[in-house]
């Protein structure tokens, strides 16, 4: 086991069609830590997560996971080893039932029964809709399903992209309670939120990303006052 941080990005550049979106991003996430990446629209938050998850290649810089440089690693290889990305838009299969969606998560070796048991223990609401087509669930239930799928694999690193997107505040609170619980169990969490104040109480550390640069970092409560300045480009 490496004693250093679980995830480290060093000077990462990445973008789309040859245009860089990230201009030298540096991040360090410790084992069992919850890090929030905050920033306005278009800051490169989701791009950072994609680079880390292996969905987008870094054009420069180092991606280091558990002490190993993993630039170019395939997303499915990382997922099999315990990096779980819950993307913006949830990434569930809308034409499959809740149960079938859960069954998709056997890639880490658990059988279907274990996956179901683990998921429904954490999200009992889903048990009542287990045979319902997931596209017909409410937004909150779909996000619960996405989280249930991810957490069923017992990931070491949970990466969440805009968990609160399109959801009512009460559901968002409920989901972030689960994130806090998962973190307390020892899973490292890297999350992206546009609405910063939602994650102030959940995150151990936060970085503010603006136009592909890390402009601020520290404890969430410490940087809370400086957020509006960063968002408004002051």
């Amino acid at each position: 086991m490496s004693d250093g941080p679980l995830v480290e990005l060093r000077g990462v550049h990445a973008g789309y069609d040859g245009i860089d979106v990230l201009h030298g991003v540096d991040l360090v996430v410790g084992a069992g830590e919850v890090m929030a990446i905050l920033g306005p629209n278009g800051a490169g938050k989701s791009t950072t997560l994609k680079v880390l998850a292996g969905l987008l290649p870094a054009s420069a810089g180092d991606i280091i996971i558990a002490g190993r440089r993993v630039n170019g690693a395939r997303a499915d290889d990382l997922a099999r080893r315990g990096l779980c990305l819950i993307p913006e838009g949830r990434g569930i299969f809308p034409n499959l039932t809740v149960r079938e969606n859960l069954w998709m998560m056997t890639h880490r070796g658990q059988d279907r029964a274990q996956i179901e048991e683990r998921s429904l223990a954490r999200f009992p609401q889903l048990a009542q809709r287990i045979d319902q087509t997931s596209g017909t669930l409410s937004g909150g239930q779909q996000q619960m399903l996405a989280m249930a799928r991810g957490l069923a694999t017992d990931p070491a690193l949970l990466v969440l992209d805009e968990l609160s997107m399109g959801l009512a505040p009460i559901i968002v609170d409920e989901l972030y309670d689960t994130v806090a619980q998962v973190a307390a169990e020892g899973t490292s969490v890297l999350l992206v939120e546009q609405f910063a104040r939602i994650v102030i109480d959940v995150a151990d550390v936060a970085v503010v990303l603006v136009q592909g640069h890390v402009v601020d970092a520290g404890r969430p409560h410490d940087i809370e006052d400086r957020l509006s300045q960063a968002y408004l480009g002051g």
Binding site: G89, R90, P94, Q125, Q132, G135, T136, L137, S138, G139, G140, Q141, Q142, Q143, M165, G166, L167, A168, I170, I171
Partner: peptide, 14 residues
């Protein structure tokens, strides 16, 4: 559930 439906997905909150 009292949450609002996701804008990007077909939702009928039965």
């Amino acid at each position: 559930m009292t949450d609002s439906p996701a804008p990007d997905s077909p939702v009928t909150d039965s």
